[in-house]
Nucleic acid binder design. Structure first.
Lengths: 205, 205
DNA sequence: TTTTTGATAGTTTTGTTAAAAAAGTCAGGA
DNA sequence: TCCTGACTTTTTTAACAAAACTATCAAAAA
């Protein structure tokens, strides 16, 4: 019946939350299904009633995180005065997201190569959603007439996202700490702002 | 005596060449000192006469590669008409260098964290040499009057180098092949050119 | 005295196997 | 339909022997 589905969804939600906490604090490999079940005072077998296996559970959490992230972007991205504000908002949200969920992504770093395809799909979805949103912002700006017409906004935004990623990576790999400290975060942020500044100027008449 | 030193240097050079070939084809961990010695028809013990240990040998090869790379940059970087040509030359040389020695750097990728300090020193030296050379090019361009005065050229070039690195990484991590194929190389190159284009325009009046 | 080597000591990697832990299944109860 | 305890299967861990490799050294060769 319909109420049953509601209840199922609520329970799924609870499982996702508990799993998120575990994955966030201890990473994928150091989190056991028993522990998650224990946190929820349910049997491990019940987890398998709701989710087919551990990796699917992880992926479900990840999908939820991705959706939340994109939601924030979508909700705000129409509300900006100019392109720069939009870009700056995007880098702030993105950065927050990565830092807040850093440990969660240990699964990424450890497996590096040969991740399940589903994960790449989610990454791809997020990327193309970002692309769509930001290139919409570019188009709006072109209509406003403050930057030159862009033949291929998607390509342009793609370029910028890659470049921003480079700033992040570069700052982290130079200091050899893996987990960026406060001061690095600020440094990265400043660099990103500078890049966006030059980039946007490069688009102007 | 002096002749002895000459001979030593020649032999060291030979060892470096043979080591380079081995490291290039098989990577650090799959290359044994016996194999290098075998290639040169000498005993393994002799290698230890010329180099203190395996990692020092690897580092010596790397230092040589870095010097060759910087030599090419230094020799050409004064000869360009404008900033863009200089940047384009740099990305071409750099890209060639990385691709040509791809396997050699498996040591990097495998150890990722906790590399010997000496390696970071070399990386740092290369980076700061690039920085110096390119920011000199920026200064020249400012004097020419075709771009706005830059308060901190080093910072600016650092930013660009990080961004370019992001292009490289982004294109590789999206397709999940680790060793970029011909078509990817071209794609990366095109993206870099585009970024440089926008970047330089962003510096103009 | 400098260069070279075979023999060998010391260390790391690899392979094996048994025990422990975790993932995943299922018959049956509420 | 939702849930569980007991069970099976798969993966991880630990211990340890064998093999491979790094590194050393006394002594020979140049």
């Amino acid at each position: 019946m319909a109420a049953g589905n509601d209840h199922q969804d609520i329970k799924r939600e609870k499982i996702l939350e508990a799993s998120h906490q575990r994955f966030l604090h201890y990473g994928y490999s150091k989190t056991t299904m028993n522990e998650i079940a224990g946190d929820l005072s349910m049997s491990k077998a019940l987890l398998y009633y709701y989710f087919p296996d551990k990796s699917q559970l992880y992926i479900a959490v990840m999908r939820k995180l991705a959706n939340d992230y994109l939601k924030v972007l979508e909700d705000h991205l129409d509300t900006f005065k100019n392109l720069k504000e939009a870009f700056v908002f995007q880098i702030n949200i993105h950065h927050d997201f990565i830092v807040r969920n850093y440990n969660f992504f240990d699964f990424f770093r450890l497996n590096e190569q040969n991740l399940p395809d589903t994960i790449w799909e989610i990454v791809g979805q997020v990327h193309s959603a970002e692309l769509t949103l930001l290139s919409k912002a570019v188009k709006t700006e072109v209509e406003r007439g403050s930057i030159k017409p862009v033949e291929n906004p998607d390509e342009l935004v793609d370029l910028l996202l890659d470049a921003l990623h480079g700033i992040r990576v570069g700052a982290v790999s130079q200091k050899k700490t893996n987990f960026p400290r406060k001061e690095h975060l600020d440094e990265i942020h400043d660099k990103k702002l500078l890049l966006i500044d030059i980039f946007i100027k490069g688009l102007m008449y």
